[in-house]
Simulated scan of single mutants.
Amino acid sequence: MGMDILHTIFLILHFIGIGSLLGGFIVQLKQLKSHTAVVNMAMFHGSLTMLVSGLALLTINEMDPAATVDHMKIGVKLLALVVIVVLVMMNRKKSTPPAWVVPTIGGLTTLNIILAVAWQ
């Protein structure tokens, strides 16, 4: 019972993190054309929330003998998220990051959502 509550809490935090990360990207869409898009605080906090809550969810699932964990799926999603976190950390204080950074963050975030939903 306790692990179910913990799992639910971390899953909600994971959804909040992805919402923040994707929302931060969507806010920057208008600036992409003029190359003035920045890595904003929503992307920073969202990516870190996703990383911490995702690792917590993985830990909880690994501890549950009844749960099956698709390690390949988790590995691919983790790789995409680590690239996102690195890009966010390296560019969050730059007034003009390279033009490819924000679209890459948005693309990898979308990829992560697709993998979570479509990879069964």
Rank of each mutant, 00 (worst) to 15 (best):
V82C: 01
N112M: 14
V88P: 02
A56G: 10
V52E: 00
V69Y: 15
F15P: 02
I113R: 02
I26G: 03
G107Q: 07
F25T: 00
S53W: 09
A118D: 14
L6E: 00
Q31V: 10
N61P: 04
T8L: 05
T110G: 12
A66E: 14
D4P: 10
A56D: 12
G46C: 07
I18R: 02
L48G: 05
V88T: 03
V102P: 02
M43P: 12
F25E: 00
W119C: 01
V101Q: 06
P98L: 09
V85A: 04
N61E: 09
N112P: 11
M43N: 14
L22T: 00
A80R: 03
F25S: 00
T49S: 07
L57E: 05
L13P: 00
I60R: 01
V38C: 03
H7C: 00
A118Q: 14
N112C: 10
T96M: 15
V86T: 12
A67Y: 12
I9V: 03
T49K: 04
K93Y: 15
G54A: 07
A42M: 13
E62R: 11
L48E: 04
V83G: 09
T59D: 07
V102R: 03
F25R: 08
I16H: 03
L22V: 03
L57K: 08
P65Y: 15
F15S: 07
T8P: 02
L58V: 11
N40D: 05
A99L: 12
T36R: 13
E62M: 14
L79G: 09
S53Q: 02
G24H: 08
L29S: 09
R92F: 09
E62N: 07
P98V: 07
V88Q: 01
T104Q: 07
A56R: 14
S47Y: 13
T96W: 14
L29C: 15
A42E: 10
A42H: 10
T49N: 02
D4K: 15
F44K: 12
E62Y: 12
H7N: 03
V39L: 01
K93N: 13
I84A: 00
G23I: 01
L11Y: 11
L32Y: 06
I5C: 01
H7K: 04
L108E: 00
A80C: 09
T104P: 10
Q31E: 14
Q31G: 12
V39T: 03
S20F: 05
